[in-house]
Design a protein around this nucleic acid. Sequence first.
DNA 1: GACCATATTACAGAAATCTGTAAGGACATA
DNA 2: TATGTCCTTACAGATTTCTGTAATATGGTC
Lengths: 222, 222
Amino acid sequence: MFTKVLVAEDYEIANQGIIKILNDKIGIHNIQEAKYCDDAYLKFRKAYNDKEAFELLITDLSFREDHKIQTRASGIDLIKDIRSVQPDIKVIVYSQENRPDKINMLFEKLDINGYVCKGQHAIKELIACVNGVYQNNTVRPPELTNNTAINTMIHLDDLDMMLLEELSQGFTKKEIRTKLKKQKISPNSESAIDKRVSKLFDDFKAKNTTHLVAIVKDLGLL
Amino acid sequence: MFTKVLVAEDYEIANQGIIKILNDKIGIHNIQEAKYCDDAYLKFRKAYNDKEAFELLITDLSFREDHKIQTRASGIDLIKDIRSVQPDIKVIVYSQENRPDKINMLFEKLDINGYVCKGQHAIKELIACVNGVYQNNTVRPPELTNNTAINTMIHLDDLDMMLLEELSQGFTKKEIRTKLKKQKISPNSESAIDKRVSKLFDDFKAKNTTHLVAIVKDLGLL
DNA sequence: GACCATATTACAGAAATCTGTAAGGACATA
DNA sequence: TATGTCCTTACAGATTTCTGTAATATGGTC
């Protein structure tokens, strides 16, 4: 089993919870914790330089903003930076994120080894994940395999996201059209935008713009 | 210090984290945990009947829905039920909720003894809270005292909330007006509703309905 | 080039939104 | 009763939203 693990998670209680599981249930005792990305990187770097490198990184994705100025804003940056130094370190992400496309992105772009959703069954999943990753498997969360939900079906491109963002900020379609023209993004005609938004209505089964934004906010896409 | 504590929290990792803090930092070792409200109540009831009652309950507010059917949906119900049996038990709520009015409601309506926000400084806050509550103090989170934010300033009555809810569900003002008339809620005229919504625009500095709903969703009021 | 599917654009009309003004009712105070 | 304030209602007009139809453009395939 892994003997040396780094845990990066800003929620202290969750941080302690992970350590307790690793301790009690998996028997890993050489654990260091960090509440900030930069702090995590420093601890990683020191261990690496001392030839006592970590074998596994367990990290959250989002770190709440704080008074401390961070060069790394998210766990994604942290993973990239650490992997650029020590490419073979195993990485497990432990996060609230449950959007399949986002989680898949982590596996595809960052080549992470495992993912555990914060939730009711996190202990069992974490244990299974650490064991699986130790055996060189890629461990995706059960939600991902079962859940072929809306998010995966509906493909939102950059323009869709921009439209949703602008609409949620209260801009009229005329204003949005003007912005698009200024940025020389096409399509930028009134009816093209109308069509795009109407398609979003269909996709999300929304009655109007307000409803659409409410749905998308609830889904956490915005 | 307290000697017997019940922890009700459905997120397993957080659950373990709390127990670790109570163990390591406060020296409480007689701790029972529950992942479901009903389970928590049963454990409470058993201890009470065995004359080995809990002295402190630490509970979350929201429990994720699951396949298990629960008679108690939220921590609020749990607190009410437990207090109706053992009125003098101390209660600390540990939750993500950060809306001042909601938190204040807990202190006023449920007479809870302490509140800790899930977050970066939860350990320090939890320790301070348990200590404070043990000394018969009421411990409100630091956020609450500092944050005289929008939420506290803007008073939203039932009609306001209903309007926001209906609008976010994509109903037109005409539809809303019809609903109000059916339920014999006044005011129900088109212009009265317009005025109400316009006031909400002013309050939340929204440009239009869509913007308003987006803001309110972000604030977590809806 | 010819063909097809798809995406963009133009235009138009009904419906809904948003912002005013003005008038009436409820209620408290003097 | 008179006065003032606040809330509700009625109405109107400009703007925006939403939904169509139809023409044009784009990109890929044969």
